[in-house]
Design a protein around this nucleic acid. Structure first.
Lengths: 240, 240
DNA sequence: TAATGTGAACGATTTCACAGCT
DNA sequence: AGCTGTGAAATCGTTCACATTA
């Protein structure tokens, strides 16, 4: 819809994807890798949608933004689609990631195998605590945060993970941005302000539980008073 | 279990909030606690919106769903609003949470202080690996997953966190649901299927990075070809 | 006067239903 | 015949702008 096509010479490599679609492509990618391991060569929109936990119309609309990806009457070629999604997500090379804060959570993230297998390489660990600097985790030495600028350049790092306490996060973020980082994944429970052109995503573990708490609260309120209005909701509620 | 009834006429207690609003209330709550610690008694929609990283119209609309919460010409009473949000989110009592899978990530989650300070109590740890059963983490003994049914009842657990490998997650989830758990926070990179009435939220760390990777990719494509169409985006891009 | 609460406009996303390929 | 790709409809969410109220 909102697309002015810039000519017959294609919007080559770069469709302007809706944000909601971007957020789902990684899920499709994971499902596709799984299907590939199981030996599937092709998959229908129904099949892939089921594996990714969405409905098939949504999946088809999402994939349609990537250009022609399937074959009518047949479905999608699994390996081809993997390639196309990895292309669009910029996963054709393994991206170097810096992790700041090797406390409780940071330590676990540093050892999380899922990053390595899905396109990323933890290239450096940082902490402000001199007691932690020098420690070795998973084959990487923890460096002092003052080394940030040098290492970011050295390792061509553009993505960083913040796993510090909330009070330190904004300061750390400022230093990351100053060093050239342009994407931040923030685990600290606070709002980060960043200049234009820098992307921030946030993961707040307690917030996830609080959202579930709301639903628990609602469910127990409904079962406690089964009298009025239950005609409303009918399907399995899966929020993501 | 766990209901706090205000009487038979408690209809007004339970607004039917939009899901997007529910997802933001915890962020407001966090910001409010922070403001309270700084000694603020009241806060305007502008002020709270800034602290929570949203715009003020959205905040007012969100809060309007809770009923009259502010005072025109003045703003919102900080402690009163905290109470109202905690009420709606069902945080008036501390909820017991089970955590399954005390590997790398699960271990860190078991020690995460943010759960304790924001309405939750990790009440039990489980693992399938007998080598881990008996280990003590943060004052809790890891139990074998066969003990699930007993412990869930004993501790009145309705929320569980899954931090197992992907291959085990569905099986663990089935056992949790069978034991009576009705909300699941899933850290395993896979889709869980659950019966109606059970809520699932998912946190996939690699997916978060992949979404950032997309934006990195797009940014570098845009700076590489500064020629065409840049009139589009204007503000700081904060995706959550 | 200052700031909330809210109808109405707008925009984004999801879903439907089917035309069009293979 | 079967399944993708896609307009159009429906739904959901955001923003605007201002009437309303303390």
């Amino acid at each position: 819809m909102s697309q002015q096509r810039t000519g017959p010479t294609d919007g080559p490599d770069f469709p302007d994807l809706p944000e909601a679609t971007v957020a789902r492509l990684p899920e499709y990618l994971r499902a596709l890798h799984h299907l590939a391991e199981e030996g599937h060569d092709t998959v229908s929109s129904e099949g892939l949608a089921a594996a990714a936990g969405v409905n098939s119309a949504k999946l088809r609309k999402d994939l349609s933004h990537l250009g022609r990806t399937g074959t009518r009457g047949v479905g999608y070629d699994v390996t081809l689609l993997i390639d196309q999604i990895e292309q669009v997500l910029g996963l054709t090379h393994r991206r170097a990631v810096a992790l700041v804060g090797v406390g409780n959570l940071g330590h676990a993230l540093a050892g999380y195998a899922g990053f390595g297998s899905r396109g990323f390489r933890i290239a450096a660990l940082f902490d402000a605590d001199l007691g932690r600097v020098g420690e070795q985790i998973n084959g990487l030495v923890v460096r002092h945060i003052d080394d940030l600028p040098a290492v970011v350049v050295e390792e061509s790092i553009s993505i960083a993970v913040i796993a510090t306490p909330a009070l330190a996060a904004q300061h750390v973020c400022d230093r990351l941005v100053a060093a050239g980082v342009t994407s931040v994944l923030n685990f600290a429970p606070c709002v980060l302000s960043v200049p234009e052109g820098v992307d921030v995503r946030k993961v707040d573990l307690a917030i996830e539980l609080q959202i579930l708490s709301f639903h628990e609260h609602r469910k127990s309120a409904l079962t406690a008073l089964p009298a009025v209005q239950k005609a409303k909701r009918g399907e399995a509620e899966v929020a993501s």
